[in-house]
């Protein structure tokens, strides 16, 4: 079943067209990887799934982008409600300069949860899901900035999970991390797809091959090919995809 379905999506930064006629379905409770050379539009596409592109002046979007049958670019759509259902993890870990606890509790608090007991529960559960609980349970009130890069990124994942989103968008979540931290996050992603629909932008083809079920190959703002990861890496239909995945590109 498609969680998100995109049809003929076009996106412009002023006069520059960053996305051209994107048509793509994202399956529920699977990991979809977006790959392609830098500047190909994969991050832009990811950010249009929770309307983070709205923050940039002069962005124009045309086309259909549906989350379970609801067009998210309709005028009367509440972006706040949308972002609560579609969480996001950024390229560079960006914890707030607050305690570990407060970082995770930030979303639920905004959502109106006030009692300490409920918050405690959510924080613990989210940190456990992000495989960070054991490492930080004794220092929840310490600043999140004291964590290592990998821990910070898992904290950011926990922070997103605390909102109980349905979809989790990840924008090159491991690009700022070392191999060990990367491996931990990848493990986590595989674990998380049991409950969440995950879309991940990555520039590492090995990563896409390791963790994703579906892969979409972006080039110059277009989707060249989208299929199961298996097929993309073994029997690509398009010559350009083949060149890219075999490393013969550019």
């Amino acid at each position: 079943m498609s969680k998100i379905s995109v049809k003929d999506l076009n996106l412009f930064y002023g006069d520059f067209q960053a996305l051209k006629n994107i048509t793509l379905n994202i399956e529920e409770k699977k990991v979809t990887a977006l790959i392609g050379p830098s500047g190909c539009g994969k991050s832009t596409f990811l950010r249009s799934l929770n309307r983070m592109n709205d923050l940039i002046d002069g962005v124009k979007i045309k086309g259909d982008l549906k989350l379970e049958e609801q067009d998210i670019y309709q005028k009367d759509v509440d972006v706040v409600a949308l972002r609560r259902r579609v969480g996001m993890v950024f390229q560079k870990p960006n914890p707030f300069p607050k305690s570990i606890y407060e970082n995770v509790a930030y979303g639920p608090r905004r959502y109106g949860i006030k009692t300490r007991k409920q918050l405690d529960e959510i924080v613990e559960k989210s940190l456990k899901k992000a495989a960070l609980w054991e490492e930080v349970k004794d220092r929840l009130s310490k600043s999140a900035l004291g964590l290592s890069g990998g821990q910070q990124q898992r904290l950011c994942i926990a922070r997103a999970l605390a909102m109980e989103p349905e979809v989790l968008l990840m924008d090159e979540p491991t690009s700022a991390l070392d191999p060990i931290a990367t491996a931990k996050i990848e493990e986590l992603i595989v674990e998380l797809k049991k409950e969440y629909t995950i879309v991940i932008v990555t520039h590492s083809m090995q990563q896409a091959a390791r963790i994703s079920d579906e892969t979409a190959f972006f080039l110059m703002g277009e989707v060249v090919e989208v299929d199961t990861t298996q097929k993309i890496f073994t029997k690509p239909r398009d010559k350009r995809t083949e060149d890219y995945v075999t490393g013969r590109f550019g």
Partner: peptide, 27 residues
């Protein structure tokens, strides 16, 4: 105030006003 703080807060489903109140202004 780093733009990433605003993005993180908004992506967590905070409204713009909540983001300003809880993240931007304190910083």
């Amino acid at each position: 105030v780093p733009q990433s703080y605003r993005e993180a807060s908004l992506a967590l489903g905070a409204t713009k006003l909540q983001t300003i109140q809880k993240v931007v202004l304190p910083f």
